[in-house]
């Protein structure tokens, strides 16, 4: 983490610990979008807003215990990921059907592809491929899904993923490999059909 970023983080943490409302607003503005996106990718969009609220509540409550060992963004991602995993655990106790849930697909149908110079039929093909990819990711076991989403979609480094999930880099490497393998086999299998 760059020195400037660390200083900015440090100052924000001090203000948050002092109960500065403006600092809290600043944190919300900076991270609510990122958290919402992460929640949609990990737990689906049905309860995404509630989960973001829950994560913010936990951030607010645990602010005093934040020691500054990692960056604020890592900390925010960690809390959000934990909230999502708890939610999925609660949900799985209620029903096993979430494993086959199309929540994430539903969430993504409103999304727009990045602007490209593709023809409409090519865009439709890309959209179709993306839907298959989403389904393949959604079917992953939660630990593998978390690693893949954080690294391949949220673009975190191995070390950052390890910090967020509280695991070692070697585990990140191995989980990512298995996750990609599974996604690739179901995605390529789907594409070939």
């Amino acid at each position: 983490m760059a020195l400037e970023e660390r200083l900015k983080d440090h100052s924000l943490v001090q203000k948050l610990k002092a109960g500065d409302d403006e600092a809290y607003d600043c944190l919300c503005t900076e991270y609510s979008g990122k958290m919402y996106r992460l929640v949609c990718r990990l737990a689906g969009s049905d309860d995404a807003e509630d989960l973001v609220q829950e994560a913010f509540m936990q951030i607010y409550k645990s602010m005093s215990s934040f020691r500054g060992d990692c960056s604020i963004s890592t900390w925010v991602y960690r809390i959000t990921t934990n909230v999502c995993q708890d939610y999925l655990r609660r949900k799985s106790r209620r029903s096993w059907r979430h494993l086959f849930s199309l929540d994430w697909l539903k969430a993504e149908t409103n999304r727009e592809l990045p602007s490209t110079d593709l023809e409409p039929h090519e865009q439709a093909e890309v959209r179709d491929d993306m839907d298959k990819l989403r389904l393949a990711i959604a079917a992953l076991p939660p630990e593998q899904k978390a690693v893949l989403v954080l690294h391949d979609l949220e673009q975190l480094t191995y070390q950052e993923v390890a910090d967020v999930l509280g695991i070692v880099v070697g585990t990140v490497k191995s989980r990512l490999f298995y996750a990609r393998k599974k996604v690739r086999s179901s995605f390529e299998g789907g594409v070939q059909k």
Partner: peptide, 15 residues
Amino acid sequence: NFKVLARESISIPNI
């Protein structure tokens, strides 16, 4: 392909 997925714009509600 993951990068295309990552770049997709998401309509984020006003939370």
